[in-house]
């Protein structure tokens, strides 16, 4: 009899617990429904993000290929310009040499005319001709201007060659950009791997782009005023001569 009473008490408790569970469930269900709605909405969005990442990832080799193409093209163009500068310099040297030869010959002609003038002092017509001929010798007068112009051509050619160092500097900047792009690609590939069960698609590297390793380029390379920069560096070197090895070691931790 007592056992039957206990069973009813226990059943009552269980029903009470079940009722509480229904109450809690009633409260939780709208939340779960909202979560399901959210997951339904976010699913296509995640697929879109994944597709977008995949698309961007696929474009990266093209971008790096373009950068490599630009680097090769500028190097080729720079080599051609340097060839022209060499030709200009060589021609200018030759011209200077030819002018100096002509100048030397003109000097000899002047000496001959001076001797001739002495021989024809009593022949006014011949004397006049010698004088006219002397007036035609103008190389000596043109020497200063010609030399100045030829020197300027050589100086300009040298300055153009110096300016072409920008090619090396931009190559290093482009290598730094390529390195950054490829780092982004690595990150994007890992994101794709996180989002998708599929294997990460291998990116087509048709041109076999060489990934620039850090250390092969200077990320901070810039074409600034060479004189002030070198002056600053010279000062640092002078200072470093007064710096102990301990001070240098401290700089590198």
């Amino acid at each position: 009899m007592n056992n039957g009473k206990n069973d009813f008490t226990s059943l009552g408790k269980k029903l009470e617990e079940l009722k509480e569970l229904f109450v809690v469930g009633g409260k939780i269900i709208p939340g779960i429904e909202k979560l399901v709605d959210f997951m339904t909405e976010i699913g296509p969005l995640l697929v879109n993000i994944n597709n977008s990442i995949e698309e961007s990832n696929a474009k990266i080799p093209k971008a790096t290929d373009h950068i490599v193409d630009v680097t090769s093209a500028t190097e080729l163009a720079t080599t051609e310009i340097l060839d022209l500068i060499d030709a200009i310099s060589s021609n200018t040297f030759e011209l200077t040499h030819t002018f100096n030869d002509a100048l030397s010959k003109e000097g000899e002609i002047k000496e001959i005319l001076t001797e001739l003038a002495l021989l024809v002092t009593d022949n006014s017509e011949a004397k006049e001709l010698v004088e006219k001929l002397s007036e035609k010798l103008v190389l000596e007068k043109a020497k200063a201007k010609t030399t100045e112009a030829l020197d300027k051509i050589l100086m300009d050619a040298t300055n153009i060659a110096i300016a072409l160092q920008v090619q090396d500097i931009t190559t290093q900047q482009l290598a730094a950009v390529n390195h950054l792009i490829l780092s982004v690609q690595k990150k994007l590939s890992s994101l794709m791997f996180d989002f998708s069960d599929d294997e990460v698609k291998q990116v087509d590297n048709s041109k076999g782009v060489v990934v620039p390793e850090e250390g092969n380029f200077d990320m901070n390379a810039s074409f600034h005023n060479q004189v002030s920069s070198q002056d600053d560096i010279d000062k640092m070197i002078i200072e470093s001569n007064n710096t102990s090895q301990d001070d240098i070691d401290k700089l590198f931790g």
């Binding site: 290093q172 810039s222 074409f223 560096i233 470093s240 700089l251």
Partner: peptide, 24 residues
């Protein structure tokens, strides 16, 4: 092209005789 102090000091510590920054 490397013109920062740490680089110059590192090169000097490695015993370069002098240092020129591009463009020269």
């Amino acid at each position: 092209t490397r013109g920062v102090k740490e680089d110059i000091m590192e090169a000097l510590a490695a015993k370069v005789n002098n240092y020129v920054v591009k463009p020269f």
